[in-house]
Amino acid sequence: MPLNIVVCIKQTPATGSVSIDPQTGDISKEGISYAISPFDEYALEEGLRLKERFPGGATLALTMGAVRAEEILREAIARGVDGVYHLCDEAFDGSDTFATSYILSQGIRKIEEERKIKIDLVICAKQTNDGDTGQVGPGLAAWLDWPNTAYVKKVEQVTDTLLRVHRMMEDGTDILEIQRPALISVVKEINEPRLPSLKGKMAAKKAVIPRWGASDIKADPALIGLKGSLVEIAKRQSPPKRAGGLKIGGATIEEKAKIFVDKLRELKLL
């Protein structure tokens, strides 16, 4: 029953700290702060909980990103993962979801080789807070040729051969059984992430983090970075600012209510 798990996490700019530099049209570097993508916290937590529910396996964290992304791997150690791997190479820069999912798949193969284990489960978040695409998880499953389920809100059961998961749908819940090895993308509802432990933090400080480049993971140069990407960002712009609107006055609550309803009627919202 034990599972060897890889959780894919990403360091992203904290929401609210991002704006467009009007000079370059690129993301402004000023005032930007980085952290683990908030959705990934649930993926990480699920990896740790599954290890606690079905002891005997290892839960590992994997990221692709700049040198500074090492911080989130240390955070993962502080929360209790058994090992972390950093895919870091200038050649990865500019990867779209297609190239990223390829690079991650090669990273997972390399982890299997390095640790001489078979990975049973890869956990991704349903999406990141920067790209918001939600494509990397399913794409990664396709590269690995593993079955996958997205929007997982519960891992009900794990047996030697399969996982039974609950998928959050717009109109209810789907229950699916998925053979190991598999990939799931999880939603926030699945758990409540823990904070790091003091002992974990101390271990994180000392940890030496393996950093793998394109050649370490035997990545095909044609499939990575800008060259391997298929979708390019042609233009970035700030969304039009919303102008502040009308204050609904009125001497009494009833008057305010009436003006409110009149406005909705005017706008054909009733």
Binding site: F98, T133, G134, Q135, A142
Partner: peptide, 23 residues
Amino acid sequence: ASTIGRSLAGRAAVMLKTGAAAD
């Protein structure tokens, strides 16, 4: 860009070795 649409697009794109954009 629903649960089904987004799940399917992500997996199909890599199977077709093509690019996808969401939402």
